[in-house]
């Protein structure tokens, strides 16, 4: 079950890289967060860790539903462009993404050799991190860059879960708080632009 969810996590991220419509990208981010939440809940149940289960539910509520909802509201309110063509053409990305995956697996080998359990999961987390960075860099529009930032957070959460068998609860809560604050800031930045235009 864990392997299936990690696979789905990676798959949703890869599809997000090829997406050229904003709402579809938000949907893929939401599904990416959903698989992450289910993964955290499953691992939490398997190792009987209540903190992990709580983190999973928080991920479900905040990242899978609340943040995508806010992002969609922001994009409607400020009339953001829904066409988000990436700088790297899709036919190049088709080659680039698998190459990046193989490269990161190779690159992360010395790290995974040091970790006794979940080695493949750790390698996938590191690959996901690189793919999220690619998502952030390949777009010129600001909205996909924000989603790139949010998927980086998801990849780091996955890495924290797989490499360390759960980060301390306090840290997880802090990261959630910062994520919410980031969304508030994004909203304010767009909002302020709107006020200035009105003036």
């Amino acid at each position: 079950m864990t392997s299936l969810l990690i696979g789905l996590f990676l798959a949703t991220l890869i599809v997000a890289l090829f997406t050229m419509r904003l709402y579809r990208l938000i949907l893929w981010y939401s599904l990416n967060s959903l698989t992450l939440a289910l993964l955290a809940i499953t691992i939490g149940i398997n190792i009987d860790d209540n903190a992990m289960i709580i983190s999973g539910f928080l991920t479900l509520v905040l990242k899978a539903f609340l943040i995508p909802y806010i992002l969609k509201r922001v994009s409607i309110r400020f009339d953001l462009s829904r066409q988000i063509e990436p700088n790297i053409p899709v036919h190049y990305s088709v080659i680039l993404v698998p190459a990046l995956l193989v490269f990161t697996f190779y690159l992360s080998e010395p790290i995974t050799n040091m970790i006794s359990s979940n080695t493949n999961d750790v390698a996938i987390s590191i690959s996901a991190l690189f793919l999220s960075l690619l998502l952030m860099m390949e777009h010129r529009n600001i909205a996909p860059k924000i989603i790139g930032f949010l998927t980086i957070e998801n990849s780091l959460f996955l890495l924290g879960t797989t490499a360390t068998n759960v980060m301390p609860m306090l840290i997880e809560l802090g990261i959630f708080f910062d994520l919410l604050m980031a969304i508030v800031i994004v909203n304010l930045l767009f909002g302020h632009d709107d006020e200035e235009v009105a003036e």
Binding site: I111, L129, L133, M136, K145, F149, I152, E153, L156, L159, G160, A163, T164, M167, I175, A182, I185, V186, L189
Partner: peptide, 17 residues
């Protein structure tokens, strides 16, 4: 926001390792 996010993500990545 973008560069800061990348920098801060790298810091968290390192902390996890």
């Amino acid at each position: 926001m973008i560069v800061g996010a990348i920098a801060i993500s790298l810091i968290l990545f390192g902390i996890i390792l």
